[in-house]
Design a protein around this nucleic acid. Structure first.
Length: 627
RNA sequence: GCCCUCGUCGUUCAACGGAUAGGACACAUCCUUGCGGAGGAUGUGAUGUGGGUUCGAUUCCUGCCGGGGGCACCA
């Protein structure tokens, strides 16, 4: 990557100041008018040398300028400039910065780099043609399991599951383009109190039990109603509570034939229903773990480590005394002898590492309301399976809330995942009603999925999302459909250009011919931000828009790397919005077909198309070819 | 009560201790014989509050105020 080369060069130059270990960064500039890259190295060095950072920046920039033209001279020059002889440890290996055209000192002591036009065109060309564009090797050779979505059979697939799915799916894909071998997992609660509640509701209304021939929609609606009935009764009615507790025990023991039958039906319907949703969302799982199987092992583990002093008995229950470690105490096995979610978690994580030997990292995506739960569970796990606990990472997402407050599936006042997707798809179809599309329904669904995923992935994970249905349904501005639309536009432009006989030509002669023409129209970077009426058709304005687009494009690989490093897909979302916006601005400002640089315009459009496609893929947002 | 977390334009989100705090929606004024107007240009507009650390704080520490979550037999 170009950034790595700059970083190496800066590091070398810094050494000549006697500055060794620093944590300076080379990054894209805060303001795109400040060049293609920027470093704060002089600020850091100034601090260490107790010198004015601005002066240090000037000196550093001089050395870097020499490296741009004649690297081997840089070594000698330093001796002169700084008044005392200094040498590089390894002067011959000084990197040549021939791809840099200009370095400037700005602000408190930033050094800004502007790429040569050759370098920028080369990057655009790489973006347009190289299949490895955007990829990095942060996770080369690593195997990672990502657990996400985690809906519970017998309950609705609600918006929280949609959120977990969007984030988990994206993290998995980001790690994949970073070189990891990723396996996905889904953990489902097919036993437990919620199942007992649903079964109680089913028994009450068994006369209306759907037939196998009924649609999945009917079946899942029936289950949903049964769950709500059971959950309500459990809270309001002591007799019902006792009945449900009894059912819970029987389900766990599998001791009641009639219950077993209802249970098997309901479980199968739920799982089938979830598969349908996964298909819509573009997700697949390599592993399905169930509390009824993997979770059972947890009980054994707890009893075993009760003997070893990790757990304690308290009021007939088996608990982990978190208070000893500054946390809080949690129940792992109830006084009725049933394992809780906590105990099942132990069994699950053991099963994960047994299923995938050599796993380097295990990531679990859940709602942030489980944050404290996970710190306790991981603490207990660290005393039982230290290796597994060390490799396990919890990533949380906030809650989606509406004006009405926290949404809950306990009382059934939920907007389910499907109903939200269906509403969004209807809005999209309404918007497209004048277009003739080959697959209008498929496109509408892609837009709906894109809209919801974008809403979830545009902010840092862990923060709540305020869901505004009006905005989500409008499909405008800062949204998934905006990105999809930009991509469709790029595709359409490419097609029209090719139909007009324009060819992508990345040969050296062609690129260099374009370069000469473009150089004449070189804009001042500030031109763009000072504001100009595009209707005046000022060539320097279209060149400025083009310049901004090129700059934005070449930062894509770094963005993906940062997203992988932080497990934060929202960096990609923000970036893609910037890219789409830069593309739209350029598209509006410059005529491509029939314009002055059609071949280079086509190359740029292809670079944008590839980058948007790759970026949307890592977010798990579907990419329609028309809309 | 204790623990965790979050307070940024009217609204919703950005800003990995650094540059003039950036987008989108809404509002105002404009732009299409030019390739998809779900678009583009311009403008108005914000770091809850009091201290501290730092050359430099939206970012780190701390008091207060306000929102959210969690705190034993749910998941």
């Amino acid at each position: 990557m170009i950034r790595d080369d700059i970083e190496q060069a800066v590091k070398k130059a810094l050494e000549s100041f006697g500055v060794g270990d620093t944590s300076f960064v080379v990054e894209r500039p805060g303001d795109m008018a400040h060049g293609d890259y920027s470093t704060n190295a002089a600020l850091i060095a100034g601090k260490m040398l107790k010198k004015n950072p601005r002066e240090v920046a000037e000196e550093l920039a001089k050395i870097l300028r020499l490296q741009m033209v004649w690297p081997s001279l840089a070594d000698r020059a330093i001796a002169g400039e700084l008044g005392e002889p200094r040498t590089f440890a390894n002067a011959e290996s000084l990197p040549a910065l021939s791809f840099i055209e200009k370095t400037e000192v700005a602000g408190a002591g930033f050094i800004n780099f502007t790429l040569s036009h050759e370098a920028r065109v080369a990057e655009v060309s790489r973006a347009a043609t190289d299949d490895a564009w955007g990829k990095n090797n942060l996770y080369d050779g690593k195997k990672v399991m990502v657990e996400y979505t985690d809906p519970n059979p017998f309950k609705a697939f609600h918006i929280g599951h949609l959120m977990s799915n969007a984030i988990g799916e994206s993290i998995a894909r980001v790690l994949e383009v970073s070189g990891a071998k990723v396996v996905s997992a889904c953990w489902q609660g097919d036993v437990g109190l919620h199942v007992a509640k649903a079964l109680w509701g089913i028994q009450r209304d068994v006369a209306h039990l759907p037939q196998e021939s009924n649609s999945l929609e009917v079946k899942s609606a029936f289950l949903g109603g049964a769950y709500v009935a059971g959950a309500t009764a459990y809270d309001d009615n002591a007799d019902a509570k006792a009945e449900i507790d009894a059912i819970n025990k029987k389900v766990f023991d599998r001791s009641d034939a009639e219950l077993n039958d209802l249970y098997a039906k309901g479980r199968a319907w739920s799982l089938e229903h979830f598969e349908e949703i996964y298909k819509t969302l573009g997700t697949h799982f390599d592993y399905y773990f169930f509390e009824g199987t993997e979770g059972r092992d947890g009980e054994k583990i707890v009893r075993e480590f009760l003997q070893k002093g990790v757990f304690e008995e308290s009021d007939g229950a088996i608990v982990f005394p978190g208070e000893k470690y500054g946390l809080h105490t949690r129940v792992f096995i109830t006084s009725r002898g049933l394992p809780t979610y906590e105990a099942k978690e132990l069994g699950l994580n053991k099963a994960k590492f047994a299923a995938e030997p050599g796993l380097d990292e295990s990531i679990i995506v859940t709602a942030s309301e489980q944050n404290d739960y996970f710190t306790v569970a991981l603490k207990a796990m660290s005393m039982i399976f230290p290796d597994i606990a060390r490799k396990t990472k919890h990533v949380s997402h906030g809650m989606m809330r509406f004006a009405a407050g926290k949404m809950s599936s306990r009382r059934g006042n939920v907007i389910t995942g499907e109903s939200l997707l269906a509403d969004l798809a209807d809005a999209a179809k309404e918007k497209m009603k004048d277009r003739k599309l080959a697959d209008a329904d498929g496109v509408a669904q892609a837009i709906a999925v894109g809209a919801i995923k974008y809403a979830v992935l545009k902010q840092g994970s862990g923060k709540d999302i305020i869901f505004d249905s009006q905005k989500a349904l409008s499909l405008e501005g800062d949204s998934g459909p905006y990105l999809q639309y930009a991509h469709v536009r790029a595709l359409s432009l490419i097609k029209m250009a090719k139909d007009a006989g324009i060819e992508t030509d990345t040969s050296e002669q062609s690129v260099s011919a374009e370069k000469c023409a473009l150089r004449a129209a070189r804009p001042s970077p500030t031109h763009f931000s000072t504001g100009t009426d595009y209707s005046e058709e000022d060539p320097s304005v279209s060149a400025a828009a083009r310049h901004i687009l090129e700059r934005t494009l070449l930062h894509f690989p770094e963005i993906l790397e940062r997203a992988a490093k932080e497990l934060e897909p929202h960096h990609i979302t923000t970036y893609l919005t910037e890219l789409a916006s830069a593309f739209n601005a350029w598209y509006a400002a410059e005529r491509i077909i029939g314009g002055e640089h059609p071949q280079y315009g086509l190359l740029l459009a292809e670079a944008v198309e590839k980058t948007l496609l790759q970026g949307l893929n890592t977010l798990g947002i579907p990419v329609p070819e028309e809309m």
